[in-house]
């Protein structure tokens, strides 16, 4: 659906993105991840035809963004970082305006606006002035704006930034509901957001892609297939820690004081052995937790590795 080849963009002398290559298939939900200033917004703006790249090629639904920008724009719903809403318009009027602007057939404008309001749960506020709405609602109006023309592709630039946790959860819920109806590209620097809604992750840092994989694939690859296990016991913690080192499959033991941290190979039998060992030692097992490498750790590993080059 979206194909990007050798994309570069410079702001003056400063390169914002360098030689980006990736593609998004129809129906995929892709998380576009990176620290602030990595080039996420720039990439998205180029895909939407908002700005031109310095070099490279972008194709959306088979159309070149620069040769037929109107065809591309007709197929994209875009929510920029700041929702592009007029504070002195009513929600319903605004959505009608956007539907007209996006070229929704005249007789379908009303139903399109009503549909977008229903999807984003704006029913209660549809006759209110946008300027008087809370930030969360304004963000939803922004999302409704992107949805109103029922585009094949949704590009959402940090859709939950600045919202409170409840509003964030609502927007994420909404994005999950949209899965399957649209191809979605979602940028963020908030990791739980990606874990909550995306199937595929592209991590970008300093204008370059540092990883592109499915969520589970990424996690497996980065941890080298291993697990870390934390064990908490009531008594004799030091003795247990020492004896655990002799269990087969345990690679490293660290006694942190509050709990014991183990690094093991990925197999489940090792974990079973560890559990049995602690129980048999009679130390009073109260907690045993298996963690695969979290996205957060992957993210930090990837983006800081790049910085130390």
């Amino acid at each position: 659906m979206i194909e990007i080849k050798n994309l570069c963009k410079n702001y003056g002398d400063r390169p914002a993105i360098r030689n980006l290559n990736f593609s998004v298939k129809k129906g995929e939900v892709v998380g576009f991840l990176g620290p602030n200033g990595a080039g996420k917004s720039t990439t998205m703006k180029i895909i939407t035809g908002y700005m031109a790249p310095s070099s490279g090629e972008v194709r959306v639904a088979g159309f070149d963004v620069f040769e037929s920008p109107l065809e591309v724009k007709r197929r994209i719903g875009y929510l920029p970082e700041t929702p592009p809403v007029y504070s002195d318009m009513y929600v319903l009027d605004y959505l009608r305006f956007v539907a007209n602007l996006k070229g929704v057939p005249r007789e379908r404008v009303e139903s399109a606006a009503a549909g977008a309001i229903e999807k984003t749960g704006l029913g209660d506020v549809r006759k209110r002035m946008i300027g008087n709405l809370s930030k969360g609602y304004r963000q939803r109006v922004g999302l409704a704006q992107a949805l109103v023309s029922d585009p094949e592709i949704l590009i959402l630039d940090e859709p939950t930034v600045g919202l409170d946790p409840k509003q964030m959860a609502e927007i994420r819920q909404l994005i999950r509901q949209l899965k399957g109806q649209h191809t979605i590209v979602l940028s963020t620097h908030i990791l739980p957001e990606v874990q909550a809604s995306c199937e595929k992750v592209i991590i970008i840092n300093a204008g370059q892609i540092v990883a592109e994989d499915s969520l589970s694939g990424l996690s497996k690859r980065m941890s080298g297939g291993g697990h870390s296990v934390t064990v908490k016991v009531l008594r004799n913690q030091d003795a247990v820690a020492k004896s655990l080192a002799s269990v087969g499959g345990v690679l490293k033991v660290r006694n942190t004081g509050n709990f014991i941290e183990l690094e093991c190979d990925g197999s489940e039998t090792t974990i079973e052995k560890v559990a049995a060992h602690v129980v048999q030692s009679g130390a009073g097992l109260i907690e045993l937790q298996v963690q695969s490498l979290a996205l957060e750790d992957i993210f930090i590993k990837l983006t800081s590795k790049e910085l130390t080059h």
Partner: peptide, 14 residues
């Protein structure tokens, strides 16, 4: 100033 220009520039209009 209010970034609504983004909407105009990403709409299918010239």
């Amino acid at each position: 100033r209010f970034r609504t220009f983004d909407l105009l520039l990403t709409s299918p209009i010239t």
